[in-house]
């Protein structure tokens, strides 16, 4: 992606800002401006809490470009407590077994280097929740 694209994505990438549909109240992440549930315009910003649980997960050994140096790495679908399912890497896992249902929370981490100029890209990952809920 180009630098300008990263800049446009900064709110969703660094602060987990999505949208809430003013018509049917669906919480939407990542933002997409048209509500997938009711088809109406949805441009109202919504701040997600960053808390959720592992919905499913795996470990990647053959990475897409930009991630080759990180393999193997755990990647998950996380269910945010507000509802949406988000794809993200897991981090700070240590010896803790990851299972479907493991509580996690969002942190900002380096995702990798992008493009020929090797620009560092930061974004969200999820780690096992430090505080029991």
């Amino acid at each position: 992606m180009e630098t300008s694209q990263h800049w446009r994505l900064r709110k969703q990438r660094y602060a987990l800002v999505g949208e809430v549909c003013p018509h049917c109240e669906s919480k939407i992440f990542p933002p997409r401006d048209i509500c997938p549930d009711c088809g109406e315009d949805a441009r109202e910003m919504y701040q997600f809490s960053g808390r959720g649980e592992v919905y499913s997960h795996t470990t990647v050994y053959q990475a897409p470009s930009g991630h080759a140096e990180n393999v193997p790495y755990p990647v998950a679908i996380v269910r945010l407590e507000e509802g949406p399912l988000v794809t993200a890497q897991l981090t700070d896992v240590g010896d803790q077994p990851i299972e479907i249902g493991t509580p996690v929370e969002m942190v900002t981490r380096k995702l990798g280097a992008d493009g020929e100029r090797g620009m560092l890209v930061y974004g969200y990952k999820f780690r096992p929740a430090l505080v029991e809920r």
Partner: peptide, 29 residues
């Protein structure tokens, strides 16, 4: 294999997903 992941949303791939990881997620679930 990495080229096949271009069938997914590029934003998800930027977050580390691959076509194979999606199928692994689904099988586990």
């Amino acid at each position: 294999a990495p080229a096949l992941s271009k069938a997914l949303d590029a934003k998800e791939v930027a977050d580390g997903a691959t076509l194979i990881s999606k199928n692994a997620d689904l099988m586990r679930l």
